[in-house]
Design a protein around this nucleic acid. Structure first.
Lengths: 217, 217
DNA sequence: GTCTATAGCGGGATAGAC
DNA sequence: GTCTATCCCGCTATAGAC
């Protein structure tokens, strides 16, 4: 294809809507603002989408669907559990970097979970990444590489929470780290590596018996 | 005082506004709905508050102020760092339980951080709990009870992230844990204890030399 | 497919009676 | 302090020209 054809009107509308919904939320974003951001007449929106709510759904589905597929795709089968968990965390970080709009959409959906649109998205994420992480932790426990006394689902939450919170709470985290605006990419990378180390330290048994299987008991 | 005098009108308005802002967000909550929820004429709102935005600020200040003060109050000075960190986490959980509305207000503020009202709240939280936790981690490192290679601020984020995410992401977490609606209190308690254990395992040095100071460099 | 014009409703806020 | 009545604005959505 020739160099970067300008996107079609419906894509421009979706992009504009995503930007504004993430920044301001559903109720505070007007049809007119979306049209202006997309460089399109506001009424055109109703040619492509039935109403504002379903435009919002389309935005979520496009973004969340891509996220779920991407996160799991970065995981070749057959890796040792601890290695797979490390990759999952790094892959998660990379995806957040690629789509900085995602944490804000997610934060809104979490706050809005009583609204009808939120649940399917949450269910999809839970069934995807979270479930996969749980399975990895159980596998690690069977091999004696992860502490047996951990409840796998709790451990999965704690492990993913580090990165999830780091990204969702960016404004708070930035203040804590002493940055005025956004957190620079280099610092994000450093945190990702820290998070991997923190998780591994929390998951693995204290005795240095990871090499031998089940040294005692 | 005699048994539970009905709260004054301004308090009823604040309570109603808090409920609705947490449930629906600022933009989606109408003055009329607040009046109805408070059992008060909507116009009365403008007798006590200049406008909708400042009513929202009042809601945040009342809730956040109380939260910050409460979290730090549960920490007597002079405790050993690891003990203090455990207490901080348990205190944090207890406060979230007392004020279930807090995580949702927080999630909204994080998503809305470009709006003018969010920053002071975030700054207050950062300067309070987060900062305190950083100091505790540094103290633990000096005593050799916490791994020296950890960046204290990163470690503080990871530690608090477990509980912060658990509460802010309640709807997602509930789905993951297999609960249809809310997470039962007992399960919340179990997660809190898990989080304390997970954090201590991640923070403390792998060698079992916590008793002796600096066993080997 | 894209735009103009506008209907119709519901929002925030105020004036003023009581 | 509390309520009634209402103004005015901006929003979503539609009709229909091009």
């Amino acid at each position: 294809m020739p160099a970067a054809a300008p996107p079609a009107a419906d894509t421009r509308i979706l992009d504009a809507a995503e930007t504004l919904f993430a920044r301001q939320g559903f109720a505070a974003t007007t049809i007119k603002a979306i049209g202006a951001e997309a460089g399109v007449n506001p009424a055109l929106l109703y040619y492509y989408f039935p109403d504002k709510a379903r435009l919002y759904h389309a935005v979520l589905e496009r973004r969340i669907g891509g996220f779920s597929r991407g996160a799991l795709a970065s995981l070749p089968a057959g890796l040792p559990p601890l290695e797979a968990i490390s990759r999952l965390l790094r892959g998660y970080s990379a995806m957040m970097r690629q789509a900085p709009v995602f944490p804000r959409l997610l934060a809104r959906e979490l706050a809005d979970h009583e609204a009808e649109h939120a649940l399917p998205m949450i269910r999809q994420l839970a069934a995807g990444i979270f479930q996969r992480l749980c399975d990895l932790i159980r596998a690690g426990q069977r091999r004696g590489e992860i502490r047996a006394e951990l409840e796998p689902r709790f451990a999965a939450i704690s492990t993913v929470a580090q990165l999830a919170w780091f990204h969702v709470a960016q404004p708070a985290v930035a203040v804590l780290l002493g940055h005025a605006g956004r957190i620079p990419p280099k610092e994000q990378d450093r945190f990702t590596e820290h998070a991997v180390g923190y998780a591994l330290a929390a998951l693995t048994p204290p005795a240095r018996a990871a090499g031998r299987k089940r040294a005692r008991r």
